[in-house]
């Protein structure tokens, strides 16, 4: 399945089924993330319910502190 993450195409395996799976796949599970799935911002508890489909668009933002 092919999805778009932060503007770039990404081929993912069948076992990555939902947003939580994608976060684990990208090894981002330790960071507090703001996630938009097909232009809808998700609460953390929704990550496991948000099922990924071919062509989906995911945006991931995290805050940093440096200046």
């Amino acid at each position: 399945m092919k999805i778009t993450v932060n503007g770039n195409g990404l081929e993912i395996q069948e076992e990555v089924k939902h947003i939580k799976g994608l976060i684990d796949f990208l090894e981002l599970e330790d960071k507090p993330l703001i996630i938009e799935h097909n232009q809808q911002i998700l609460q953390k508890e929704e990550h496991e319910r948000a099922v990924l489909e071919n062509g989906d668009k995911v945006e991931i933002v995290h805050f940093v502190g440096g200046g």
Partner: peptide, 20 residues
């Protein structure tokens, strides 16, 4: 919008923040 980018990874993200 909440805007983020990673210049090295060629990523650019814009998110409508009102819902937050």
């Amino acid at each position: 919008k909440l805007i983020s980018f990673d210049l090295w990874k060629n990523e650019h993200t814009e998110m409508e923040a009102a819902a937050l």
